[in-house]
């Protein structure tokens, strides 16, 4: 008996999918902003000459980069309550994404910082700029500009990775898909459409980050 596809069976549930898209977007936005912020902090700590802090950040980066996101998520959601830290599904998912992206972007931003020629920093010092000014104008802006494409890819990867947050019942897009699938038993159709939605979201996100990068790094150079 041949299988009859019925994509129409998803239509009545479009609102659930939309809610899922919204929540995935929220998670991605929180993860991107806080994660990259954490990454900049981490990269700064890693390049500053304070051995203990730099090493601690190094351990954090290696721990996160060498374990699966799903396990980090389970550890945060199921494990941390043992230490008295109870988080909602959404909080746990958001925290896991921030911690995860923070580690990757620490490495990426650090690579950008290391690519800044030492002469630039010496020149800034001879202009009597202080450490904060040097970091802000001489180091981080050109560094971010250089590594923006790599950072954007990582943000997209983390957004797509958020699909496993359905496993702790955070009600993002995959959770919505699972839920609909449980109601109409049209697993293939539901996941097919959801995959399409993710594809559109990742293409859009990449474009947004590109435009945002242009805005951030190009315009003020001419001012």
């Amino acid at each position: 008996m041949a299988y009859q596809f019925d994509f129409g069976a998803i239509l009545p549930h479009w609102k659930l999918l939309l809610d899922g898209v919204v929540l995935t977007t929220e998670l991605a936005a929180i993860g991107a902003v806080a994660g990259v912020g954490l990454g900049i902090l981490g990269a700064w700590a890693r390049t500053a000459r304070t051995p203990v802090i730099s090493q601690l950040v190094g351990v954090y980066v290696e721990l996160i980069r060498n374990t699966p996101f799903l396990v980090q998520l389970f550890f945060i959601f199921f494990g941390l309550p043992a230490l008295g830290i109870k988080l909602s599904e959404f909080q746990a998912a958001a925290l896991a994404m921030v911690v995860n992206l923070g580690a990757y972007s620490t490495e990426i931003v650090r690579a950008g910082i290391q690519a800044i020629p030492a002469g630039q920093i010496e020149a800034a010092q001879s202009l009597a700029m202080n450490r904060v000014q040097i970091f802000r104008y001489i180091i981080i802006r050109p560094a971010l500009k250089k590594i923006w494409p790599a950072l954007s890819s990582q943000v997209v990867i983390v957004m797509l990775g958020s699909s496993v947050c359905s496993q702790i019942a955070a009600e993002e897009l995959t959770f919505a898909a699972n839920y609909i699938q449980g109601m109409n038993f049209r697993a293939f159709e539901v996941y097919f459409v959801t995959t399409g939605l993710y594809l559109v979201m990742s293409i859009l996100l990449r474009q947004i980050l590109k435009v945002f990068g242009n805005f951030l790094f190009e315009r003020r150079n001419h001012a």
Partner: peptide, 18 residues
């Protein structure tokens, strides 16, 4: 583009149910 632009979990679901 398809495999880098969609979650691994979705790819597995499609294979598993498809």
């Amino acid at each position: 583009e398809l495999f880098q632009g969609t979650p691994l979990l979705m790819q597995l679901f499609i294979v598993f149910f498809g």
